[in-house]
Amino acid sequence: MRALRIVRRLVLLNVMATLEYRGSFFIYMLNAVIVPLITLMVWLAVSEQGVRLPYSREQLVTYYLTLSVVSIVCSTWLAEYVAEAIRLGKLSSWLLRPAPYILHDIGNNIGEKVVKLPMLLPLVGLAGLLFRGEVHLPSDPARWLLFLACLPVTAAIAFLLDFVLGSLAFWVQDVSGLIRAKSLVGAFLAGEFVPLALFPHEVSGFLDLQPFRYTLSFPIEILTGQLTPARTAQGFAVESAYIVGLWACYRLMWRYGLRSYSAVGA
């Protein structure tokens, strides 16, 4: 309960800080819409070759417009900051506080998104106007509920994955290359450029189990409606396993990491 109160405080603090830089965040949001739109155009060009893609034109449009929103809801940017806090000793001041350091990043993550989303949604709406009549959102409320239930879990997996990666800085001097590689490979395996449903059938077993599907693609797949109930259930099971596994990783890494932490002031 106390942790919740602290997070609420931190979120408010971050909302204020983010509002201060609203112009900069607006530019991020523009890019968050433009880049998926460009990828969408390319796939539409492919679909116009008269070939049968596993996705119809409408599904492609819906996929990439939803991707704009989901990618922001589930975005993370903290690995670099966690690593920096550990390396430069900014973490030390947090060790004195009666709250775990992770709350700092949770507050920052939610706080920024609270400001980003109201900026993003009108832009996605505008993009939707460009494709009037081709956006097919489900009318089935059950699917919306599943989607909405899935979103925070997916965001949490993306967050924990980044946090664990940044925490490697307890043992590794420079993790920036690793972080960069993860963001490239992660975006690809999360279906940012090629929807996972368009990958060859032979790798679908691997795609269903690898973590990056559960940092972006899975909720979109639920909403664009191409998952059988069995595969949806299986997805939720894998998602839960990742949450538990990553949380355990985080706890273990920080227990042992803090012992070997030797930056300024520790």
Partner: peptide, 29 residues
Amino acid sequence: LVSVLTGLVELGLAVLTFVLMFRFTNDVA
């Protein structure tokens, strides 16, 4: 070294994207 390695990853992913795209057709536009 890091820059060269991440550059290789970027190149590999770009190639993979196009390989996946051209599974469906032999020519696009």
